[in-house]
Design a protein around this nucleic acid. Structure first.
Length: 581
RNA sequence: GGGGCUGUAGCUCAGUCGGUUAGAGUGCCGGUCUGUCACACCGGAGGUCGCGAGUUCGAGUCUCGUCAGCCCCGCCA
């Protein structure tokens, strides 16, 4: 390992192997930066200490050649304080070339002002891209996060158990990746969207503390933080309530944050889903800064400002955000924020600035001093207001809040805002009036709301919780239903017939009938955690071999067409043939 | 499924109003150079302007289509 050498090693005779990172040929003297996973070390070649063959070979070395160099560690006459090993160098006596590299298609070395190659080239030449120190650091950090999680959970008596990758298609939720069965032609396995049902069955079987670093697969369209396959720290325990899970997982958060030296105060703050939606307009608020949403419906009703007043009169609310110091934003800045709100579904934003000469802006002339006082407006403030039903204004004001904080450069009150959001609704209403699961169909309804389940299902809270960090959902879990009759009721509410329930969830209901302990758990997104911890722009930078946004693997070339022979063996015939490349 | 951005030398990019032989930096090849560290200096090679149509006397540049990558909406129980 080359990266750890210091002045303490001076005088040692060593043979070091690695890749040629960069070469500087001065004629009589020649320098090579040797790279391995641990870092860089300068190797010097000169007629006074290098063999003649060594000098000849050194002259021929190209970037990314693999070499073994034998020589002595020496102090440098001119140390390089920029390099961790910059005080010393290896004076090469001899050198052996273990492997010749073709001129790299994309550079591994990157100068201080060089841009990264485009992402498709980085993915196509992943073998080279993965050599970059940044990616090696990212994957190393990811490894330590997972290792910390394993050690922590093992210390609490959790047992790692693998569950199948070839499994049964699930009726609800994301699209499944399907695998044809050769033995049973016309039948298919599915890759798991998560080990959810398996881990519940493990609870029933008495494995009362389970975890798994689990690969999950979902055939849906991708984003910067979404890949078709991703990894979760999947946890489940028996005889637990919400608080047990939260306290255990807080310990896990501390353990993985320790990897990056991030301090975490326990217990983590907690917000009900209803409060999160009311005050921040989203179920995953970024609490690095304040700027809560406030209800100004009563103020609006006292004005003649029809744009806001109208929606309130028909049952909506006028809510908004007061931005201290926001009056210095230009009309153009405010319009840019309004665009964000519109993109999130709002018809528009009204606003009022309070300057030295009084209130201005579309809303300004409609407000009295008393109104402004009621809104808490102080000189220099800006208020942005949206009116309508909460289901429209909440997402719009959430977008407004984020855009306004960015435009204003709102100072952060903290750099790391961890948060529990609890009490998610069991169901969400679809536009067609039907019900879909808020999370998944196995969430235990809140005991206080059990009466609402059939009378007012949309208001039923579940014993469900999300772990949120800086506005990103990093984990999601719940206490599960362990009574088969209640599970059947919930599935019926979702519009499933008893026949369907038995066909699709029969094995779960049968398991729950075998003496099921109360149980619950959570799953944390490893890729997203690693992404946040390394500050990467996408989870592709913390995955060794990621897919593109079109779910292609550019390096190995997946997916790929199948020949007729293979198709026949699987009992398949194509309706659409892939274009021949 | 929809919207947006990008595609020019191995890589990163520039390319004016549609007009002569498409440029720069870096890398690569050859040469000089004994303390460099983005070494320096001299010389050279390197182009299907993503692909296909169209408009035009003339297209890297305009139009349409298409492919690829990225970002977003829908979707992701």
């Amino acid at each position: 390992m080359v990266g750890g050498l210091t002045a303490a090693n001076v005088g040692e005779e060593l043979t070091l192997a690695g890749w040629v990172h960069r070469r500087r040929d001065l004629g009589g003297l020649l320098f090579v930066d040797l790279r391995d996973r641990s870092g860089l070390l300068q190797v010097s070649f000169g007629p006074d200490w290098t063999s003649e063959e060594g000098l000849l070979l050194a002259r021929e070395l190209g970037p990314e050649d693999v070499v073994a160099v034998s020589g002595m560690v020496a102090l440098r006459p001119d140390p390089n304080p920029q390099m961790p090993t910059g005080a010393v160098e290896l004076r090469a006596g001899s050198v052996e070339r273990l492997s010749v590299a073709r001129t790299p298609a994309i550079p591994v070395y990157r100068g201080p002002e060089d841009e990264l190659p485009s992402e498709d080239l980085r993915l196509r030449h992943r073998v080279l891209d993965l050599r970059r120190p940044e990616l090696q650091r990212a994957l190393g950090l990811r490894h330590r996060v997972v290792l910390a999680a394993r050690n922590y959970l093992d210390g609490l008596g959790f047992m790692e158990i693998e569950t199948p990758i070839l499994t049964r298609p699930t009726p609800e939720g994301a699209r499944d990746y399907l695998v044809p069965s050769r033995v049973h032609k016309g039948e298919f396995y599915a890759l798991p969207q998560s080990p959810q049902i398996y881990k519940q069955i493990l609870m029933v079987s008495g494995y009362d503390r389970y975890f798994q670093i689990a690969r999950c697969f979902r055939d849906e369209d991708l984003r910067a933080d979404r890949q078709p396959e991703f990894t979760q720290i999947d946890v489940e325990a028996s005889f637990v309530g919400v608080d047990d899970v939260l306290r255990w997982i807080e310990g896990l958060v501390v353990a993985i944050c320790d990897v990056v030296g991030m301090h975490v105060e326990l217990p983590l703050p907690s917000l009900s889903w209803a409060d999160a939606m009311e005050r921040y307009g989203t179920d995953r608020p970024d609490l690095r800064f304040g700027l809560p949403i406030e209800d100004w419906s009563s103020v609006v009703l006292e004005t003649e400002f029809r744009v806001l007043r109208g929606p309130v009169e028909v049952g909506g609310r006028a809510r908004g955000i007061r931005l201290p110091g926001g009056a210095r934003l230009s009309r153009k800045d405010i319009e840019a924020i309004e665009e964000e709100a519109k993109a999130a579904g709002a018809p528009g934003l009204a606003w009022v600035k309070l300057g030295d000469e009084g209130a201005s802006g579309p809303l300004g002339k409609h407000l009295s001093e008393a109104h402004l006082a009621e809104m808490g407006m102080k000189a220099g403030d800006l208020a942005l207001v949206a009116a309508g039903p909460d289901r429209v204004t909440s997402p719009a004001l959430s977008a407004t809040r984020m855009a306004a904080a960015a435009a204003l450069g709102t100072p952060r009150e903290r750099d790391h805002a961890w948060l529990w959001v609890t009490g998610f609704p069991v169901f969400e209403e679809t536009d067609g009036g039907g019900l879909v699961p808020g999370h998944h169909p196995f969430v235990m309804p809140h005991p206080e709301d059990i009466d609402l389940l059939e009378s007012d299902p949309a208001r039923t809270r579940g014993l469900a919780y999300d772990l949120v960090y800086n506005g990103t959902e990093l984990g999601s879990g719940s206490i599960r239903i362990h009574r088969p009759d209640l599970q059947r009721t919930v599935l019926r509410m979702l519009g499933l017939s008893d026949v369907d329930i038995d066909r699709k969830f029969g094995f779960l209901l049968e398991a729950l009938s075998a003496g099921a302990p109360p149980h619950g758990g959570i799953a944390l997104g490893v890729d997203r955690i690693a992404q946040r911890f390394v500050g990467a722009g996408s989870i592709r930078d913390v995955i060794a071999f990621p897919k593109t946004t079109a779910a292609r693997a550019l390096f190995e070339g997946a997916p790929s067409p199948l020949g007729d022979e293979e198709l026949t063996e699987l009992g398949l015939r194509l309706v659409t043939r892939a274009p021949t490349p």
